[in-house]
Structure formats: C-alpha cells, structure tokens
Amino acid sequence: MTIEIKTSTMKPIRNTYAHIERRFGDKPATRYQEATYDVHSTHNFHYKPLWDQDRQINDPARTAVVMGDWYDLKDPRQFYYGPYVQNRSKMQENAENNFKFFEKRGLGESLNSSLREKIIELVIPMRHAEVAANLNNMYGTAHGTGTAVTQALIFEAMDRFGNAQYFSKIGLALDGNTGDSLATAKEHWMSNPAWQGVRAYCEKTLTIKDWFEAFIAQDIVLDTLINDLYYRQFDEWLTQNNGRDLLLLMEFMQDRAKDSQRWSDSVLKVVVTESEHNSNQVLAWISTWRIRAQEALEPLASALLGDKALADAFAVLEKRLTKVGLNC
C-alpha cells in the first residue's frame, strides 16, 4: 500500500520569528531562542512608576552595569521554563527517594546526638539564609533587563526557595516531623553568635538597590563561599565523621549549586568582559561584599569546620574570580 502525502505545497514561508531571524539568520530556531530573545518590552512606555518616577517601568538604568545587548547573557544551560521544571523535577524525584529511604531506614535515629545537634545548630538555619537568596534573585527578575538573564534569575530564586524547604525537611527528618528542630534552628538563626554575621549580611543584601549588585553580593560572593563550606568541605567532614547518611539529604542542594554556578560564572564573565566600566564596577562591589562576607562567615565557618575553612573557601572564590578575569 502506498500513502500519498501532499507535501509540495506545504513549504514554510519563513523559518522563525523576525527578531530571531535578525539575530541568528534565516534558519529554524531553537525553542530556547524563541522563548528568550527580545521578549522584554523596550520602547514607548506609558506611565511613570509610582515607586520609581525617574525611571521607565523597564529600565536598563536599574543597574550601574552597562551592556550593549543584555541578551548576551545567555544561559549556558539554555533553560527556558519547560526544560527548567523538567530538570528540577528529575532532581526532586531523586531527592524524594533519598528522603524516603532516610526515613524508612530510620537513619535519623542512628545519628549520634552531638551530630544531630550540630546539624540543627549549624545547618538547618540555612533555611532562612536561602529565603534571602530567593528574594535577591527575585529582585533581579523584577528589575533586570532582558529575558535571557531575568528568566535565569527567577529559576535561581525558585531553586533557592526549594533549598529553604529542603533544609526544613532535613529538620523534619531529624525531629520526627514535630518541627521542634526547626524552632530550635530558628533560635540559633536569631541569636546564636555563629549566625549573626550571616544574618546581618543577608539583611544587608535585601536593602541593595542595584539589582546586579544584589547578584554579586548573593550569587557570586556569598554563594561561592557557602557552597564551598557546605557542599564541599562539610560534605567531606560528614563523610569522615559518621554522617554519610545525611549526605543523601544534601544531594539536591549540592547538585543544584554546581548547575547554578555554570550559569552565574557565565553571567559574570560576559558582564566584566563587556567593558572596563563594568569590570571596575563589579570589582568595587566585590571588594565591598567580600569584606562583609569575611566578617559574616568567620564565626560560622569556624564552628562548622574549624579555623582554616573560611580561608579555603576564599581561595575558591579567588580562583573563580580569576577564571573570569577579575583579579582582586
């Protein structure tokens, strides 16, 4: 049997949207391209914001950093909404299984009490710090320019809220779902000297007006240090100190941090290589925030891992900055 398909008259008259064609040529486009480029409105705004009358509603001047084309900040992961949720859905399925396994085997009960207390004192309060990360990235979504970066920022923001919930779930896994550990952890967050520097840093970042400065303070300076302390150094520490089971519960945060760093490295690199103006501005922010981060993290890093830990984390930050051409 032959099937006749009439295809001769079914030729497309164009391959993609005009703005995509202007950027990438007349050829079929990827879904990332169509979903991302030039989506932000750029011209002919109607009203002055009641809360920011000197700027337009979408205004590149909401940061001191200047880009010829904000769409240069492409996400190396090419996440638009669909791939983002599908990727995170897979990761959460894995996390869900880990948590189930942990609970089913009663692994929480087999932890020795000093380790349990250490987790409640020095790990679970991260759930609050993650809320600041959520807000700082949401700030960039609201005030940033170009969907390439603003969409990645909201993905980061939602991720960080997810992190806050996972840290809380670790608490629930340890306290048998009573929530007692969360209440204790919150007291540590509010008054334990180990946390006050971090809390002050978080509160300070929430008052930043320039959205790219918020990105630097949060996603570059603080996160690089936190990621190294918690997801590398503390990971090793747990392995050596009978805490392997807990690694199951940290896996999501660890994997996610790696994934996110590919994006934030790329954003940083593109912005600082754009111009001297940008790299000077970014350097100025970094020098301000690294001093604050040093003070903020010292007591926490010492309590968590000992005196040398923070210096090691700063070495990682140094390396990360050097890699993108920022020599502090």
Binding site: H128, A164, L172, T178, Q196, A200, E203, L206, T207
Partner: peptide
C-alpha cells in the same frame, strides 16, 4: 515513628516559618 503531618501544618513549617524579624537593618529598607 515520625508524626504524620497534614498538608496545612507541613506547608506552614516549610514556608510561613521561614521569615524572621530583622535586627540589623530596617525592614522598611528591604
């Protein structure tokens, strides 16, 4: 054996409880 948390309580612990009162900055600035 772990307590069974209903949806409302769980959501409260995983969301509402995450906020805190500021002491280092004026909340109005944030």
């Amino acid at each position: 054996s772990p307590k069974k948390l209903n949806l409302k309580d769980k959501y409260k612990l995983l969301t509402r409880d995450l906020d805190w009162e500021f002491s280092y900055e004026d909340r109005k600035e944030a």
